[in-house]
């Protein structure tokens, strides 16, 4: 059954580095507007998978489409349709907030007027008017992270890839970050997020658990807890790694 609402699709996607297989035959389907989570320990292959989907890395074998475009042949077209934010937050610390927005908007082809609008919009949404002209390095970490998210969304991409976006941020800032993600999803943006925080996995609509490059489970957090008769995702994760992990 092929639904037009499937926005990311992978078929046996595999990536090897020498003899090491970072991503091993992963097949997933992600629906439009979904918050899809990838849970796994460090080195489980989450980042490699996300980088293949963003066109930063070529797959060794397997197929994948993003927004209906083939990642091997049409990666240039995919770039207009996706936003990406990595765990480094990817802002220039020596530039001001305004200059960062100006740069990222500029490389996506936004014109002066649009850039100005975006600056206003972001400063209002994130309540950062007093910070617009200060160095990005002076921002509190949580605000920096939300700004990074805003710069990844400057061109209104239908799909957003977040690679461990909350690492190194305190729990309160994490919560307000997730509120932003919910807002975006409600507007129809599909969100693909990796994390190694098990509690965050509860925020996702659907979840996939990865271990050593393989996908060992995929379902909603609720059904997973029901199926394995566990009270929390913490227990589900521990159980799955013991039973199905390599």
């Amino acid at each position: 059954m092929k639904s037009p609402d499937i926005i990311v699709k992978t078929e046996n996607l595999t990536r090897q580095f020498g003899r090491f297989t970072a991503v091993n035959q992963v097949s997933i389907r992600i629906n439009r507007g979904e918050i899809f989570g990838f849970l796994g320990a460090n080195g489980a292959g989450k980042t490699t998978l996300i980088r293949m989907l963003c066109g930063l890395l070529k797959p060794s074998s397997g197929e994948a489409t993003v927004a209906g475009l083939d990642i091997k042949r049409e990666s240039e077209k995919i770039k207009q349709k996706i936003g990406y934010m990595s765990q480094h937050f990817s802002l220039y610390n020596d530039l001001t907030v305004k200059e960062n927005i100006e740069f990222y908007a500029g490389i996506y082809g936004l014109n002066r007027k649009q850039i100005f609008q975006k600056q206003n919009e972001i400063s209002k949404q994130l309540q950062m008017e007093p910070y617009l002209d200060s160095r990005t390095s002076d921002l509190p970490l949580g605000l920096k992270q939300r700004l990074a998210l805003a710069t990844a969304l400057l061109h209104n991409p239908p799909i957003l890839f977040l690679d461990e976006p909350t690492s190194g941020v305190d729990p309160r800032a994490r919560r307000s970050f997730w509120e932003l993600i919910y807002q975006k999803a409600a507007q129809g943006t599909t969100i693909f997020v990796t994390t190694h925080f098990i509690d965050e996995s509860e925020y996702c609509h659907r979840l996939s658990i990865m271990d050593n490059g393989r996908m060992i489970a995929i379902d909603t957090p609720e059904s997973m807890k029901k199926r394995y008769k566990k009270k929390s995702m913490q227990e589900v994760f521990g159980f799955l790694i013991r039973e199905k992990g390599i």
């Binding site: 930063l56 990595s86 990817s90 490389i107 996506y108």
Partner: peptide, 9 residues
Amino acid sequence: TIEQILVSP
């Protein structure tokens, strides 16, 4: 920051 540039068009 290079990744952020490379995922852009």
